[in-house]
């Protein structure tokens, strides 16, 4: 068991029918780091996330989360592990019949003996920390904008102060200012809580501002991992196009550079 990896994936294979999504995929998420996972649409980023949290039955391979093999957990162990991670799905996946605050209260109900007022207070705290105004607490998901739903999803993922946070495209569909605030929030939370963050994104600005390392998914595996400067040096056509395209250049405006 390696102490400094929060997640270890080895030789993962995923397929739907005869459509192979991942083949012999390896990936590490170190403790306390923010790992950006990038790749073209349909390369299986969401599927990888779902496999790690055990929502997809995988064909082959080992997935260890916090030192425990996902495939061979008893239901009690699994429950304990689930309390140590938080997942924010691509489109929020909020419970539509509950208000935002009640959504955040759902995971908190697992804490025995927590008084109602504490539970409500903590839920409202998480909603505020995710950057939603107080009047969002009593709104239903259908009354929120797309960006607000994402923040509510984040608040729910953070409810139990997890050690690992899975985020599926958290900034997609947010305005640039909102996206920027979201990026800073994630870094702030990581610094304050020493979170390990598995961050699926297409947003080059997010990659620049948040991520310690980047993993590129292509050709059914993790093609490369490394820091942004290491990514810039890779000459695989897709990776090169991704990190040297016009958008990438725009994201690397001078204020991003140290020099």
């Amino acid at each position: 068991m390696t102490g400094d990896n929060a997640i270890e994936v080895r030789g993962l294979r995923n397929q739907f029918g005869d459509h192979v999504v991942h083949d012999d995929l390896d990936l590490d998420l170190r403790r306390g780091e923010i790992l950006g996972v990038v790749g073209g649409s349909g390369t299986g980023k969401s599927v990888l996330l779902r496999s790690i949290v055990g929502l997809n039955q995988t064909r082959h391979g080992d997935i260890r989360v916090l030192g425990q093999n996902i495939g061979s957990l008893t239901s009690a162990e699994r429950e304990a592990l689930e309390r140590r991670w938080g997942v924010m799905f691509q489109d929020g996946a909020l419970f539509s019949s509950l208000t935002v605050r009640e959504n955040v209260e759902v995971p908190l109900r697992a804490v025995r003996d927590l008084s109602d007022s504490d539970r409500i207070g903590l839920a409202e705290l998480k909603v505020a920390m995710a950057g939603l105004p107080p009047n969002a607490n009593d709104k239903y998901p259908s009354e929120l904008s797309g960006g607000m739903r994402k923040r509510a999803g984040l608040a729910r993922a953070l409810a139990l102060d997890p050690e690992i946070l899975f985020l599926d495209e958290p900034t997609a569909g947010l305005d640039p200012i909102g996206a920027d605030a979201f990026d800073r929030l994630i870094v702030e939370l990581r610094d304050a809580l020493n979170l390990s963050v598995f961050l699926v994104t297409h947003d080059l600005d997010t990659l620049h501002t948040c991520c310690d390392r980047i993993a590129v998914l292509a050709e059914k595996k993790v093609l490369a991992t490394g820091t942004m400067s290491e990514m810039l040096a890779i000459d695989h056509p897709w990776v090169h196009e991704y990190f040297h395209g016009p958008r990438a250049r725009a994201a690397m405006t001078p204020d991003h550079e140290d020099a």
């Binding site: 306390g32 870094v187 304050a192 809580l193 020493n194 942004m228 550079e257």
Partner: peptide
């Protein structure tokens, strides 16, 4: 060089 490379860490997991 890009700025994201290293940043101060908060609590270390004891």
């Amino acid at each position: 060089m890009l700025r994201f490379a290293s940043r101060p860490r908060g609590t270390t997991l004891t």
